[in-house]
Simulated scan of single mutants.
Amino acid sequence: MTVLGTLAGIGMAVGPPLIYADQAYSIVKKKDSSGFSHDVCGVLLIANIIRVFFWLGNRFETPLLIQSLLLIVSQLILLAICLHYKPTATDSSEDATNYAPLSPLPSSPNPQSHSREDSDYLSQPPTANSNNRGSGGLKGLCVGGKRPFEFWQWEGYGSYLEFLAALILTLGVLQIILGRWMWYIDALGFIALSIESTLPIPQFIANYKRKSCYGFRSSTLAGWFFGDAFKTVYFFVRRSPIQFKATAILTLCWDSAVLAQRVMYGANPPREGINQYSSNPIQQEEEERGLRADGEERQFSLQ
């Protein structure tokens, strides 16, 4: 029984971070992260940072703490990969040399399109004017469109690091002030695990908008479903805090929803003729019709 418990603990610690290894490899291989919602990285980073502070007041099992630390590291790497290979709104699927303008160089004559070698992750993102290119813009790549303060829609990797550093600093101050009260510690646990329970939702929305699961690895989905099923059983057998049990069940329900999408939509690319980065295909069709009319008018004037 001790051996099984040890193996289960090792699986809980290293299993979830390894789920995303194949997803990262696939993005690097295809040089395209458009099918994977990088909001998933945000959910895991925020939830596990809060969970670490929850551990300071309620010393749950060490494998779960190690799991949180490994997930933080793995998601920072995956987030950098997603941003690096995020295509621009004007990119065609055949053009694999242009990526999202994480931080175009000031001397660049065309900041809207440049190769990834010119990117500096830690630089400031470009101005708002360079972000709104075309009707779809980069907003079409993000779940939920425009957000207050463009939350988790920043283009510079440094902006994400600054936010996470501010979150850690805030939680550290609150831990010093309120860490002696158990109600605060319990609230941290519920907040951390409630956020983590929403993990499949950004991917669910992205799949629904594109009517396709293209770019989202089946291995990641299998890891979510079977991993969360294993965690649910583990939490009940090991009598983990109620926060872990309740949120594990909720996460498993959302995993089932994404699994249903995989069966319905399949893994084929989105339908041709509809820009996968545009949230309004009708508006895109009208613009294309207008461009054709402009071209005909110019041709007539030349004659």
Results as ranks from 00 to 15, higher is better:
Phe53Lys: 12
Phe53Leu: 15
Phe54Ala: 05
Phe54Ile: 04
Phe54Lys: 05
Trp55Ser: 05
Trp55Pro: 07
Trp55Leu: 09
Trp55Val: 09
Leu56Arg: 12
Gly57Pro: 10
Gly57Ala: 11
Gly57Leu: 08
Gly57Trp: 02
Gly57Val: 10
Gly57Thr: 06
Asn58Gln: 11
Asn58Ile: 11
Phe60Ala: 04
Phe60Thr: 08
Phe60Trp: 08
Phe60Tyr: 15
Glu61Pro: 01
Thr62Ala: 03
Thr62Glu: 02
Pro63Phe: 10
Pro63Leu: 09
Pro63Gly: 04
Leu64Glu: 07
Leu64Asn: 10
Leu65Asp: 06
Leu65Met: 11
Leu65Gln: 09
Ile66Gly: 04
Gln67His: 11
Gln67Lys: 14
Gln67Met: 14
Ser68Met: 13
Ser68Trp: 15
Ser68Tyr: 14
Ser68Lys: 11
Leu69Arg: 02
Leu69Gly: 10
Leu69Asn: 01
Leu70Ile: 08
Leu70Ala: 05
Leu70Phe: 11
Leu71Tyr: 07
Leu71Arg: 03
Leu71Ile: 15
Ile72Pro: 03
Val73Glu: 00
Val73Leu: 06
Val73Gly: 00
Val73Pro: 01
Ser74Tyr: 09
Ser74Ile: 15
Ser74Pro: 02
Ser74Gly: 05
Gln75Phe: 15
Gln75Ser: 07
Leu76Cys: 01
Leu79Tyr: 04
Leu79Trp: 04
Ala80His: 08
Ile81Phe: 07
Ile81Asp: 01
Ile81Pro: 00
Ile81Leu: 08
Leu83Glu: 07
Leu83Lys: 10
His84Val: 02
Tyr85Trp: 10
Tyr85Ile: 04
Tyr85His: 08
Tyr85Glu: 01
Lys86Arg: 12
Lys86Gln: 12
Lys86Asn: 14
Pro87Cys: 04
Pro87Ser: 05
Pro87His: 04
Pro87Thr: 05
Pro87Arg: 05
Thr88Val: 12
Ala89Met: 13
Thr90Trp: 09
Thr90Val: 09
Thr90Gly: 03
Asp91His: 10
Ser92Ile: 08
Ser92Lys: 14
Ser92Pro: 00
Ser92Met: 10
Ser93Ile: 10
Ser93Tyr: 14
Asp95Ser: 08
Asp95Glu: 14
Asp95Met: 07
Thr97Cys: 05
Thr97Leu: 11
Asn98Gly: 01
Asn98Leu: 13
Asn98Met: 13
Asn98Cys: 07
Tyr99Phe: 09
Tyr99Asn: 12
Ala100Gln: 12
Leu102Ser: 09
Leu102Asp: 01
Leu102Gly: 09
Ser103Lys: 08
Ser103Glu: 06
Ser103Pro: 08
Ser103His: 14
Leu105Trp: 06
Pro106Asn: 07
Pro106Trp: 03
Pro106Leu: 03
Ser108Met: 07
Pro109Met: 06
Asn110Ile: 13
Pro111His: 15
Pro111Gln: 12
Gln112Phe: 07
Gln112Glu: 10
His114Glu: 07
His114Lys: 03
Ser115Thr: 14
Ser115Glu: 13
Ser115Arg: 13
Arg116Phe: 02
Arg116Gln: 03
Glu117Ser: 08
Asp118Ser: 11
Asp118Lys: 12
Asp120Ile: 00
Leu122Lys: 06
Leu122Met: 15
Leu122Ser: 07
Leu122Gly: 05
Ser123Cys: 02
Ser123Ile: 00
Ser123His: 10
Gln124Ser: 11
Gln124Thr: 10
Gln124Trp: 06
